[in-house]
Amino acid sequence: MGKYQLGEFEEVVLLTVGVLYGNAYGVSIKKEMEARLDRKVSVGALQSALKRLEDKGHIVAKYGETTTERRGRPKRYFSITSHGKKAIEETRAVRNKLYGDIPKVAFDVKIV
């Protein structure tokens, strides 16, 4: 796991970028996350997480064409790299392994 360290927020962002395949840019990621996780996401937090993921090589950014809808500003589209994909897979594998190793008894609800 050491190679692909992901924070919780970073992981969610990375997954969302994957979910929105082809249409992942700032506002769409924000909205998707807010809708799915039912929590507020600030532009600052999101952008800095995206910057970090980008620096780590999990995602790449590419400017889209200029349109009128954003007062002429281009969208910055993100997509997952193969490196990012490995990171998601490994994180998931680690989670699953951890989950699988929990003894059944631990989930029994005890009323004391």
Binding site: Y25, G26, V27, K30, V43, Q47, K51, A61, Y63, E69, R70, R71, R73, P74, K75, R76
Partner: peptide, 16 residues
């Protein structure tokens, strides 16, 4: 703002 990020984030901000 970092110049690389500027247009994208500015666009996001304006859209929002």
């Amino acid at each position: 703002c970092h110049p690389d990020l500027l247009p994208g984030i500015e666009g996001d901000l304006l859209e929002l």
